[in-house]
Computed example of a mutant assay.
Amino acid sequence: MSHLAVAGLQLDLQAGDNLDRIADEVAATKRRLSWVDLVLIGELSAYGPSVVHAQDPGGVAETRLRAIARDNRVWLVGGSIFERVDGVIYNTCPVIDPNGEVVLKYRKIYPFRPYEAGVAAGAECMVFDIPQVGRIGVSICYDMWFPETTRTLAWMGAEVILHPGMTNTIDRDVELAIARASAAQNQCYFVDVNLAGHLGNGRSAVFGPGGEVIYEAGSGRDIIAVELDLAHVRRVRERGWHGLGQVLKSYRDGPASFPPYREGAVSASLAVLGPLEKPQGLAPPAPLKIQDQTEG
């Protein structure tokens, strides 16, 4: 068996407690599409983007997501939640198996700084195995802007990258270009699920191991159910997409040692860019000085 049926839920959510809505949407998806093996929801779906909802491990959100997976007998990649560990807040994606057990918690390596303030960076790329199917990698939103994250997941053997996001800005089109390129460069499926409505502008997408577009959603609520063939990924990696580039083998066998990855390497060009902070607008004009023309 090498097929994985994935349903990406592009949900129209509000900031606040969305757990009941998520439970209803997952249950409805499984009732209608009983063949679905895994459900993926968008980043920070449970409560939205405020760190005031940060929870301790095993809190209300995690407990509820575990119950949703168990009740519907699906793998659930629960978008992400803000999780507080020893006083430090992480943007954490729980992966839950059909028995309701958490098999991993991935912490976003690249929080969207300087806007995602107060959130610490994770330090580890993570994959999990679905028995008799294959190996799956997880990244979150801004992570994919750094090609090292997806390349590391492929290097670890990931054949599918599941990527929850929450984007409501004008760079969504750029993100789709990055997701598509990530699939082609790493010869994997890339499933990018965004939020819709108040929290996101949608356009979730699924790309195949040649960079081919399997599906792209519009801006509203959508249920994206696709069957991924991981044997196809293995064949593409072995022979090239339609017999063309064998990208991962060339990467493996290439002689180059790239300067940015050498221990102790420092870039003078990057050093002069200044601090990572929010851009500022134009300085306000100086107050007008009114000359006193009163006759004495």
Rank of each mutant, 00 (worst) to 15 (best):
G211Y: 15
G211W: 13
E212F: 01
E212K: 14
V213H: 07
V213F: 09
V213D: 06
I214L: 15
I214S: 03
Y215M: 04
Y215P: 00
Y215K: 05
A217L: 13
G218H: 14
G218Y: 10
G218E: 13
R221N: 00
R221T: 10
D222E: 14
D222W: 00
I223P: 00
I223G: 02
I223S: 05
I223W: 09
I224G: 01
A225Q: 10
V226C: 05
V226W: 01
E227P: 00
L228M: 05
D229W: 06
D229H: 04
D229M: 07
L230A: 05
A231R: 09
A231N: 10
A231T: 11
A231F: 02
H232M: 13
V233P: 03
V233I: 12
V233W: 03
R234F: 04
R234W: 01
R234G: 02
R235N: 08
R235C: 04
R235Q: 15
R237E: 02
R237S: 02
R237Q: 11
R237M: 00
E238M: 07
E238W: 05
R239F: 08
R239E: 12
R239S: 08
R239A: 11
G240T: 08
G240H: 08
G240N: 12
W241Y: 15
H242K: 13
H242T: 04
L244W: 08
G245M: 06
V247T: 13
V247K: 11
V247R: 12
L248N: 13
K249G: 07
S250Y: 07
Y251W: 11
Y251H: 10
Y251L: 14
R252A: 09
R252N: 02
R252P: 00
R252K: 09
D253G: 01
G254M: 15
G254I: 10
P255W: 11
A256H: 12
A256N: 11
S257I: 06
S257G: 03
P259W: 13
